[in-house]
Design a binder for these strands. Structure first.
Lengths: 380, 380
DNA sequence: GTCAATACTTGACTCGGGAAAGTAATGGGG
DNA sequence: CCCCATTACTTTCCCGAGTCAAGTATTGAC
């Protein structure tokens, strides 16, 4: 959290994290929330205020019976520090500058003609410079960069073990990017980064367990269980796209059969429509225009996604689920069938789990990357 | 851990837990394993030795280059304290006495003509008396009882929210049993209890994430993720039995379609065989005798289970999976198809996840209950 | 103005754990 | 055989996070 300090009192991290994610809170409320004494919160908050991370808000409305000294809630000074987040896709870099409260303050992107590591690093450098030296003068108050990459990523070491889309194997992205940008870099899998963002700053706030499902050419899932992100022992987790929901379904490129992705991925949908040369967007248009055959393909796809989500819900029992992602441009076509498939396969009380179906703009992926660097900052 | 103490130094719990689950370890090894200083381990171990929970073993083989003082490993005094575990099924109580090391020292059972709460408590009292006052003289060194019940159980309060098999709603089982037995009681869901036992004392030892699948009339799953048991926000988790693996499969009593349980539960198998009056055991005999039609039913069932397990593995990426349970009396018929279904649907590196298929005797469920009370004891 | 109620601060204390130096027990080299 | 390096454990002293209890601050109700 502070450039010099080795490690920081747990209470300070806890206070900062809670104010960050759960908004302005009085010291008393924080103490109750964190199971600490009021004294401990006072002591933890003081240095945070002195260093400009927290501020004391004017007393607002009263809480209880109406008597007593009003609380002075602690709020984040969002301007105290800025964070860059960049999502690296196969053909583009998407970058944002976020403040400490994870609000997007600036964004930019650069095309990526190819995914050579060196080339990506060069372009990344340009993108970061563009973001930090553009209007807003963020450079002076920015020390961290978060990168989101699809594939198998070790966040602890910043190593990209394997990224099929980028054709990368064992790229020490954190080290390389730190040399290239002179920022402290954190690297995370893209879906996990997005999940983190929703967990800290979105619909997952306060949820002990939480799932985020992304629908697109691939179908992915980020999971938070017992308050912690699920990483998977083999570097693999959240592969909802390869949960089999139909033993007699189409073969999947992964070797499985009837995988959600083999039924509901954009490519799979195009294939299932079976009209040569037709693009996904054209299929969407046809379905919206009332083409029943194409509509049935979308119905089956939505149902498969719903089934897959129910599998997640039955297994880990999250308290909230958010469905999102690129492919949800067509989300009006999917949503009712996602919900129907989910309701049918959700067991018992799981069916009551709130399910938000909501497209997230692409920029959100970059915000996820920034969020991961905010986490790294707070925990440091 | 100690009758008087309110809470105990974290290091003491950590040391005791680690020795309990990972066997005799020297103080140095414990310090490394737990990230503590050697001094801290020495201090934590002393009272544990004084109170008879740990003992110092004679130095055995050397580790490193061959010089230096030999280590004196710390081991559990398994006889220091005993624990009763009882699994409550719809027609029987199965009880065991375990030592501190979770070894079964005595066992007994009582039929349960009906599942009235009062009746169950009376029988439970008799069973506990039989176990503690029988040979072995465990009574004096036994203070805790663990109960395992199927259904929705709140371990923290010992409330059985809903148990379909027992027809119980909101039974404060912990309170009732404590009055009845004058032991400190812990209540847990049966599958979670069994999972806990495997996690602390079985194949799941040392695994950060771990799954246990039980196959029988129902099909259940216990999950450990990031070292912690998954409980589910709605009191539901691990419902692998209701993961849908075949959209065109048979309807399930839960309202879903093609649920694993609707294909591979014992009732479902009997139904799929479709010969009036035939029992599950008879179906097993037929299949073993080479009846291809019946064999195909078992093959389909095993495949469905394997698919369901792959769903678990793809989603949470456990480092080990154990398949077990009552129905696995027929496990020779299931196993190859479980493995085949798993391998087909497991994504990427997940397919390398070690999968043990292994019948656990019924007594193990009671041992699971005892394990939960050992955990409660250690954490106290 | 007093009183109760609530929020926050202060200072003394407790206690868990770390650092470093000391003791114990071994094998190997002179 | 005696040192010495090596490893295991113990002791002492200290620090610092967090609690407790008492005190201050700020409000509304009477």
């Amino acid at each position: 959290m502070f450039p010099e300090a080795e490690s920081v009192a747990p209470a300070m991290t806890a206070v900062l994290t809670t104010v960050l994610t759960e908004g302005p809170l009085s010291r008393v409320a924080l103490a109750r929330r964190l199971g600490l004494s009021q004294a401990a919160v006072t002591k933890a908050a003081r240095p945070l205020i002195e260093q400009g991370y927290l501020q004391e808000l004017a007393a607002t409305e009263r809480s209880g019976p109406g008597a007593g000294r009003p609380a002075s809630p602690l709020a984040i000074c969002a301007d105290r520090e800025f964070f860059v987040g960049v999502k690296i896709t196969a053909d583009e870099l998407i970058g944002v500058v976020c403040d400490l409260g994870a609000q997007v303050r600036a964004s930019a992107h650069r095309p990526l003609p190819h995914t050579d590591v060196d080339h990506v690093l060069t372009e990344l450098g340009h993108l970061v410079d563009e973001l930090l030296d553009g209007p807003g003068d963020y450079r002076a108050r920015t020390r961290r960069l978060g990168l989101a990459v699809s594939g198998d990523v070790d966040r602890a070491t910043g190593l990209v073990r394997y990224s099929p889309f980028l054709h990368w194997h064992d790229v020490p992205l954190q080290d390389l990017a730190e040399k290239n940008t002179s920022l402290t870099v954190t690297v995370e899998n893209d879906v996990k980064a997005l999940t983190t963002a929703e967990h800290w700053f979105g619909e997952g706030v306060g949820a002990e367990s939480f799932a985020l499902v992304t629908v697109g050419s691939g179908i992915g899932c980020g999971l938070v269980v017992n308050g912690r992100l699920v990483s998977g022992a083999h570097g693999v987790a959240g592969e909802i796209g390869h949960v089999g929901v139909d033993v007699n379904g189409p073969a999947c490129h992964c070797g499985g059969r009837g995988c959600v992705e083999a039924i509901a991925g954009t490519d799979a949908i195009v294939r299932a429509v079976g009209r040569p040369g037709l693009t996904f967007e054209e299929a969407v248009t046809l379905a919206r225009a009332g083409d029943t055959a194409v509509g049935a393909v979308f119905a089956r796809a939505g149902d498969a996604i719903g089934s897959g989500i129910a599998a997640v819900a039955n297994l880990v029992g999250p308290s909230r689920i958010v469905v999102s992602g690129e492919g949800l441009s067509a989300y009006d076509l999917f949503e009712p069938h996602i919900r129907a498939g989910f309701q049918r396969q959700a067991f018992g009380a799981v069916a009551q789990c709130p399910l938000s179906v909501r497209p997230l703009p692409f920029e959100q992926w970059a915000r996820g990357a920034a969020t991961v660097s905010i986490q790294a900052f707070v925990a440091a």
